[in-house]
C-alpha cells in the first residue's frame, strides 16, 4: 500500500466526511470574519486543528481498519475520540468562533433550536455529564454490547460518534474558558471533583481487563486480527490503555484547572463578553 492509501478511509462514511469538513469550514470562516482583537492566536488555532485532525485520523483513515481488528488499537482510537481530541478542542477555546456563528442564527430558527438547548443543559448537569462520560465507556465495553458494536456497521459508527460527542461535551464543561465568577460556567471546585470522580471507574474497568485471565472480548478472535498477535497481549495492552492514560489526562486536567483557579481566584470581575481565560496564545 502506498502512503496515500493509508489516508483513505477504510469504511467510507459520507456523513463523517461532511461533518468534519463543515467544522473546518465554519471554524476558518468564523476566524477570518472576527476582528483581529478577538481572533484566537496561532497556538489556539493549531491546538483546535490538531484535535480535529486527530479525531478524523482515527475515525476515517486506515487507522480505523486496525481499530476494527485489534482490541488495543480500538482502545487507542477511543482514547483519542473521547479524551485527547475533545480535550485539545476544548482547550483551544473556540468560544469566539461559536459566538460568531451563534449570533448569526436567524431569530426565526430559535424556536426549533430550543429543544437542542434543553438537551444540552441537561447533559451538562455536572453529575449527569460525569455519569455519561464513564457510563458510555462501560456501555460500549460491556462484552455483549462490544461484540454487537464490532459486528454491526451501524452500531460501530454510532459507538464512535457517541464517544466523540460525549468527549466534547465533557471536556467543554471542564475547560469552559469563562470564569465561574462572572458567568454561569461550572465552579473550579466542581470541575476538579468531576475530573477525580471519573478516574476511579475507568481504573477499575481497565484493571479488570488487564487482570482478566479469560478472553473478555473474543470478537477480535471471531473476526480475525489485523496481524497475528497473541490475544492475551492484545487484551493486556488494550486494558492498560483503558486504565492509565485516562487517569493521567484527568490529572493534567486538574493541574490546568488549579492554574486557572490561582489566576482567577476569587477576584470578581465584571461580566464581559471578551473575558476569556487560560489558553490565550
Amino acid at each position: 500500500m502506498s502512503w496515500f492509501e493509508y489516508l483513505l478511509p477504510y469504511d467510507f462514511s459520507p456523513l463523517t466526511l461532511l461533518a468534519f469538513l463543515a467544522v473546518l469550514v465554519l471554524y476558518i470562516r468564523g476566524l477570518r470574519a472576527l476582528p483581529v482583537a478577538e481572533r484566537p492566536g496561532v497556538l489556539r488555532v493549531g491546538t483546535f486543528l490538531l484535535g480535529v485532525l486527530l479525531c478524523y485520523a482515527v475515525m476515517h483513515t486506515r487507522f480505523d481498519y486496525y481499530s476494527q481488528y485489534m482490541f488495543f488499537v480500538h482502545r487507542g482510537q477511543h482514547l483519542v475520540l473521547h479524551h485527547l481530541g475533545p480535550m485539545l478542542i476544548a482547550l483551544s477555546n473556540p468560544l469566539p468562533i461559536l459566538r460568531y456563528w451563534g449570533n448569526r442564527i436567524p431569530q426565526a430558527a430559535s424556536p426549533y433550536l430550543a429543544p437542542l438547548g434543553w438537551i444540552y443543559r441537561v447533559l451538562q448537569q455536572p453529575f449527569i455529564a460525569a455519569f455519561l462520560f464513564v457510563g458510555l465507556i462501560y456501555f460500549w465495553l460491556w462484552p455483549s454490547m462490544h461484540f454487537d458494536a464490532m459486528l454491526s456497521r451501524q452500531l460501530y459508527w454510532v459507538m464512535n460518534w457517541s464517544m466523540l460527542l460525549d468527549g466534547l461535551l465533557f471536556w467543554w464543561l471542564i475547560f469552559d474558558p469563562r470564569s465561574p465568577y462572572s458567568s454561569g460556567a461550572l465552579s473550579y471546585g466542581m470541575r476538579i471533583l468531576l475530573l477525580i470522580l471519573v478516574i476511579v471507574p475507568q481504573q477499575v474497568l481497565g484493571a479488570w481487563i488487564v487482570f482478566n485471565r479469560g478472553m473478555v472480548y473474543d470478537v477480535y478472535e471471531v473476526c480475525g486480527r489485523a496481524w497475528p498477535m497473541a490475544p492475551e497481549t492484545d487484551q493486556l495492552i488494550g486494558g492498560i490503555l483503558t486504565w492509565i492514560p485516562p487517569s493521567m489526562m484527568s490529572g493534567i486536567g486538574v493541574l490546568i484547572i488549579l492554574g486557572r483557579l490561582l489566576h482567577d481566584g476569587g477576584s470578581v470581575k465584571p461580566s464581559s463578553e471578551l473575558n476569556v481565560q487560560g489558553t490565550n496564545a
Partner: peptide, 21 residues
C-alpha cells in the same frame, strides 16, 4: 466485519493465512 492477512512465505513458498474463525 472480518478480515484476513498473509504471513511472509518461508523458503518453500508456504505461508500462513489469518482469517475469521
Amino acid at each position: 466485519r472480518t478480515t484476513f492477512g498473509y504471513n511472509e512465505p518461508d523458503e518453500n513458498g508456504d505461508y500462513d493465512v489469518s482469517h475469521s474463525s
